[in-house]
Design a protein around this nucleic acid. Structure first.
Lengths: 159, 159
DNA sequence: CGAGTTGCTTGACGATCTCAAGCATCAATG
DNA sequence: CATTGATGCTTGAGATCGTCAAGCAACTCG
């Protein structure tokens, strides 16, 4: 699938002095470190707006109306947990519970204007993440995106 | 710095049908999604050994003796929080508190044999992460490693 | 209608997290 | 040496997060 010699030399030109092929363990550690760094960047940005990371994460899922059950699935947690988180967001006016017209058991959660604006700012204020991505040029971003997309299927549906 | 045309076509051969250059937002979203997926993989593996994710994360830091204060710095949390986490790990025999010979205020936390073995297994059992990385060949891993290393400086020391 | 399922909430309980306060120890100063 | 201040850890109060079990309302199917 890949022409090793040509590709590696191109990559070397691209990423600077190439470390020799990393162990899976090294790669794993690096991915983990960056994952937590980015999560903490997110948490810090959320905190500046008086949100916990979980509240911000929930808010980030609300592109449209989502039933409580759906939020539990997205956040991979118990539905009873979502009740409390939405309670607190609703008390601050960032979110609304709307009755579902088709099923009276269901409550759909919707972000208010203020909620949308807040999460937009949180994303914009993730300085560490933004400046990290700014270190890459366009070609590198495309390459990174492609590689990460290849990782996605393995990571997201787990066995 | 980069020969765009040649590089992009090589990358296209490498990553399959190339999405056009992704927005920073798209890239950010993808990185976030993979970060959480990996974190949940870690949490699930830890849970199989009766550990919470935070307990496992603390255990993962113990390559040698680390003072409580140092753990708080590594985990980016209050020192009083570490007390409780170490209490629970110590009660299960995964960790020990040792007096510091040079400073009697300090307690150094050390992983026991069982603690080391447990965290080793947790890492080994992160199936989703391992199988995701298995989807990449050697050249791709090297490329990914190089790109992530470029991201690290921006992400880790934040302003 | 009745039985089972599903969506949400509540209550109990443990873990995580922060803050303020406290105790012991260290370091520096007079 | 004695005092003062800083440092390392623990404790307690209070909020959030997370699960499980139980409950109520509403949907589905026979």
């Amino acid at each position: 699938m890949v022409n090793d010699i040509k590709l590696l030399s191109t990559l070397e030109a691209m990423t600077g002095p190439t470390p020799h092929t990393p162990t899976k363990a090294q790669l794993l550690e690096l991915v983990a470190a960056l994952g937590t760094a980015q999560w903490q960047d997110f948490a810090a940005a959320a905190a500046r707006h008086g949100l916990t990371s979980v509240q911000a994460k929930l808010l980030a899922q609300l592109k449209g109306p989502v039933p409580m059950r759906g939020l539990a699935a997205l956040l991979l947690c118990d539905a009873s947990n979502v009740t409390g988180i939405v309670d607190r967001l609703e008390a601050r006016g960032l979110v609304r519970r709307e009755p579902d017209p088709a099923d009276r058991r269901v409550k759909n959660v919707v972000a208010t204007d203020e909620g949308r604006e807040t999460i937009r700012r949180v994303r914009a204020e993730m300085q560490a993440t933004h400046s990290a991505l700014d270190a890459l040029d366009e070609a590198e971003r495309t390459a990174l995106y492609g590689l990460l997309e290849r990782l996605r299927p393995g990571l997201e549906h787990r066995g």
